[in-house]
């Protein structure tokens, strides 16, 4: 379970996140939805302990990201925007590298990596170097890497951007599978339809604040719009820019 409590973060003059609070629960997929520059990536980076909030904090299964970053990181798997694989290592080696760094037992690593490769169905290209991978192959490998230490919480930053239909579908299936395993999945996107199709809970962010946090139907109800895109636009308008 991920809980954000009043997070503020500025970069110089830019006040990117302004007092953001929300909770993402286990066994649910929570979507962080917002236009470009709304503060989605900054929020996710704070949750991954990459950035320190100016005010407020967040906990990952009770571990505080500010005061106990190492424990918090142990409980998260993160898929950053852009996969960030090592091009000269194979998919298997990329995953195994993270397995080793996460402190898995030396004897278990090969088995664990093989298990991940099976789960994600990436056996076809597991022993090829990442350099020539398609976007979909890269994303799947990076997801495998994020899952290697079996984290309870998953943070995915715009995972489907740039993927074709088939790759998107298979990634969605994987995300649903992870939810079924009882994990807490938090993922960001700027596409309303995608979030609607996948998420149990949706947080719409605009100008560094939460506009609405509700289920898909709840959002429709509260904005009074049937069309999802209209609802999204209406929700953003509710915050306004001060």
């Amino acid at each position: 379970m991920i809980q954000a409590c009043g997070i503020h973060k500025s970069f110089g003059e830019v006040h990117a996140v302004r007092g953001l609070s929300f909770a993402a629960h286990d066994g649910k997929i929570t979507g962080l939805l917002g236009p470009n520059g709304a503060g989605k990536s900054t929020t996710l980076r704070v949750l991954c302990t990459l950035l320190k909030p100016d005010q407020g904090t967040a906990t990952i299964d009770g571990a505080d990201v500010v005061t106990d970053g190492l424990s918090a990181r142990r409980k998260i798997g993160s898929l950053p925007h852009g996969s960030g694989l090592y091009p000269r290592l194979t998919a298997r080696e990329n995953i195994a590298y993270y397995a080793r760094l996460c402190g898995l037992d030396r004897d278990d690593i090969a088995d664990r990596v093989e298990e991940i490769i099976k789960t994600l169905d990436i056996g076809d290209f597991a022993d090829r170097r990442a350099k020539g991978f398609s976007h979909g192959q890269r994303t799947k490998t990076a997801l495998g890497r994020a899952l290697v230490h079996d984290p309870q919480n998953l943070i995915l930053d715009e995972p489907t951007t740039g993927l074709d239909v088939m790759a998107t579908r298979s990634l969605r299936e994987l995300i649903v599978k992870l939810k079924a395993e009882g994990r807490c999945v938090l993922f960001s996107s700027h596409v309303m339809q995608e979030v609607a199709a996948l998420c149990d809970d949706i947080c719409i962010i605009a100008h560094g604040k939460i506009a609405i946090h509700d289920s898909v139907d709840g959002i429709r109800e509260r904005t009074g719009r049937e069309d999802l895109e209209d609802a999204f636009v209406a929700a953003i308008a509710m915050v306004g820019d001060e």
Partner: peptide, 10 residues
Amino acid sequence: GSLEPLLALP
């Protein structure tokens, strides 16, 4: 872009 996930490891 591989620095970010690396630093997010425990």
